[in-house]
Design a protein around this nucleic acid. Sequence first.
DNA 1: CGTGAAATTTTTTGGAT
DNA 2: ATCCAAAAAATTTCACG
Lengths: 160, 160
Amino acid sequence: MDHFDYIDQQILLQIRKDARKPFSQIAEELKVSNSLVHQRIKKLKQQGVIKNAEFIVNEKQIGYRTKSYVGIRLREARYAEEVVQGLEKIEEIVECNYVSGYYAIFILIYAFDNQHLRKILYEQVHKIDGVAGTDSFICFDTNFKKPISLDAIVSKHAHD
Amino acid sequence: MDHFDYIDQQILLQIRKDARKPFSQIAEELKVSNSLVHQRIKKLKQQGVIKNAEFIVNEKQIGYRTKSYVGIRLREARYAEEVVQGLEKIEEIVECNYVSGYYAIFILIYAFDNQHLRKILYEQVHKIDGVAGTDSFICFDTNFKKPISLDAIVSKHAHD
DNA sequence: CGTGAAATTTTTTGGAT
DNA sequence: ATCCAAAAAATTTCACG
């Protein structure tokens, strides 16, 4: 990524918080033309800095009251790929990562309640061939969730 | 949440994937008027089903190549609140949860690289009063990331 | 690299069915 | 509860500095 200046940063700070904020309004605040905002956003897309825009769904509001991270241990490391394939079919699992440390795979699950979570684990996850066991880290509460800082990437190019 | 019908579901499926997709286009596909789409989205907002729209930032593209989940153990449980306050000040930590199980707190960190991660843990997290220790689950790869299913919430209201 | 203004498209509102 | 159509606003393009 090159040429990430103050304007880019300010635009990005705005649109990652509110993807539907009018470009014209951002332009006004930054005291630049709206075509410039338009061009910069286009550039950020082309560079792959931003992907799509998403409406954020409140999972609790639609009934998913149990959020849980789950660490998965494998019987043998070589089962990893087929286990991931099995996990992908379970719709309550919304994220899946290969990780370092005690677990081979780390997933995020949304379930209606704790019993539903238990059912998903016992009746689906544990039955996938290669899964040795799971440990659940049920989220009692999410204290905060915030976007990553952009400060470290802007100044590096200030002299361009 | 009440009255979540097929139209609501289809709209939600679309806008959570692409928050900037023209409502008029969604309307056309669903063969309803654009004012109806407009009204339904307004309703979904009022109900709290959807929050804001966000442009999704590619963290790798802006230099954050190390993603890691980190479990935090406390010296004593009662330190929880002040530890969270300390964690919130660290800008690389983007999410923080109270969890069940072996750890008290579970966080998500984005760092430039593994050394940067180590530095954040050793020089910042471990120095917060009340933190007994941490275990890192560095993500080698994110296999998938997908939105939660909406099927379970739509049919319940089909007869309204 | 940046702007201003025109052309196009979308959002939003309010009355009608 | 949904639609149509007008009004308001935003996006997008492009010639020019």
